[in-house]
Design a protein around this nucleic acid. Structure first.
Lengths: 119, 119
DNA sequence: AAATACACTCTCCTTTTGGTAAGTATATGA
DNA sequence: TCATATACTTACCAAAAGGAGAGTGTATTT
């Protein structure tokens, strides 16, 4: 019987792309990072308005996860009404080229785009 | 009141990275493509053995989706017992650099790796 | 005096995702 | 003759993800 291939049974999270995917796979996470890379600093409701289709709950969870993963920074100002500013961290910035590459591939290779080319 | 930012309400799927993510976000999809890029041509059970932790059902679904998205080719041989060969398509091949970039970023920036560096 | 804005949280619900285990039809090897 | 191999599919479940809508406390604006 043929031997099984070498790294059999490796968990997704233990591979490089699996780990990367676990950080940016959440819905809207890449979009949040995109907005932060464009605007540098943004507040919670500002992000909500920009993304539009995201719910409060999801935005809240995504921001917490991004912060826990060290991709964004959260600065809270002790004011009333409250003020919280989000921005990319160094680590988050280093991911932007990866996002750009995914973005470019997607724009060039999306099926709708391909159909538009055919016409 | 401040205007909302320009592309408000854009659905995830309609962005470049959102589209790319929808193609490779499924569990094990990137791993399947990795194996196909290494071995060129593989059969169903061969992939199953290599990946190890994937179930028949999930592998089956992922392969169908990858094929529907034009990332892999499926060739069926009318034999008994059956024989089916999977390989990357041109389009699938063009995604490999993206996977590589994600892989490299993940390996350099995974938290376990960072902890190992500290010691 | 009432509405609005800030940054969230909470509960309930639905959808999606993925896993387990068993089954299919047939041929080959022990 | 019986197990094993091929490439799957099907039914049933459990967990996770994400959405909807209401609520919180205070201050400014109308």
């Amino acid at each position: 019987m043929r031997e099984t291939c070498v790294p059999t049974g490796v968990e997704l999270k233990d591979t490089g792309f699996g780990y990367t995917l676990s950080l940016i796979g959440g819905k809207y996470k890449m979009i949040i990072m995109y907005w932060l890379s464009e605007n540098k600093v943004m507040r919670f409701n500002e992000l909500k308005r920009c993304i539009g289709t995201i719910s409060f709950k999801t935005l809240s969870i995504m921001l917490k996860e991004l912060e826990a993963d060290g991709l964004i920074k959260r600065q809270e100002f002790p004011q009333i009404p409250p003020k919280v500013e989000y921005s990319l961290s160094e680590r988050g910035l280093s991911l932007i080229p990866v996002l750009n590459m995914m973005c470019e591939w997607g724009e060039k290779n999306s099926l709708p785009a391909l159909e538009a080319v055919k016409r």
